[in-house]
Simulated scan of single mutants.
Amino acid sequence: MDDIVRTRIRDSFSAQSMMTTLGAQLDSIAAGEIVITAPILPGVRQQQGFGHAGLTFSIGDSAAGYAALTTLPIENEVVTAEIKINLLAPAQGDRLRATGRVVKPGRRLIVVSAEVHALKDGNATLIAILQGTMVPVSI
């Protein structure tokens, strides 16, 4: 993976107003794998004080999508065709970490997954698993 791909992903991530609103940051870029973290801010909590599933889903979807993008030529972008989430535990902690991975790359469909962990006091708890399909599109 070259610096052009890394720069492209960083620039694209920076342009996402949703990620900015959530305070999310791009922590790691590797071929077929992206890590995004976000704080569990007061404005993204659900009624019981846990991080909202919407936060979990948003960073999981973005991590999986950017992982797919690492496998594509520079003239392509990617959009989510479908993605499902299994919520495994409450999002208790200070931050969430989403690790998106490519399961099966392709020219027309890319199967992806993401794991989301809640980080608290140096411990990471798996709180969600996502699996989906990304579709390459020409820009």
Rank of each mutant, 00 (worst) to 15 (best):
M1K: 15
V5I: 12
R6D: 03
D11I: 00
S14V: 00
Q16D: 04
S17Y: 14
M18W: 10
M19H: 12
A24W: 11
L26Q: 09
D27R: 14
S28M: 12
S28N: 13
I29P: 06
I29Y: 11
A30G: 06
A31Y: 15
E33L: 04
I34D: 04
I36P: 06
I40N: 06
L41Y: 10
P42F: 02
G43F: 07
R45H: 04
Q47F: 07
Q47I: 00
G49A: 01
G51P: 05
G51M: 04
H52L: 01
G54W: 08
T56S: 05
F57S: 04
I59Y: 06
G60F: 02
G60I: 01
S62G: 03
Y66I: 00
Y66S: 04
Y66K: 13
A67P: 10
A67V: 01
L69T: 04
T70Y: 04
I74H: 15
I74N: 15
E75I: 00
E77S: 12
V78C: 12
K84S: 13
K84L: 02
I85R: 12
L87I: 08
A89V: 03
A89L: 10
P90N: 08
P90Q: 08
P90V: 02
G93P: 14
L96V: 03
L96K: 07
R97G: 01
A98I: 05
A98W: 11
G100S: 11
V102C: 10
R108I: 00
V111P: 07
A114C: 13
E115A: 09
E115V: 01
V116S: 06
A118T: 06
L119K: 15
K120G: 00
D121C: 03
D121G: 03
A124G: 06
A124M: 11
T125F: 03
T125W: 05
T125Q: 10
L126E: 05
L126F: 05
A128I: 01
A128Y: 09
A128D: 05
L130N: 02
L130I: 00
Q131H: 09
T133W: 07
M134N: 07
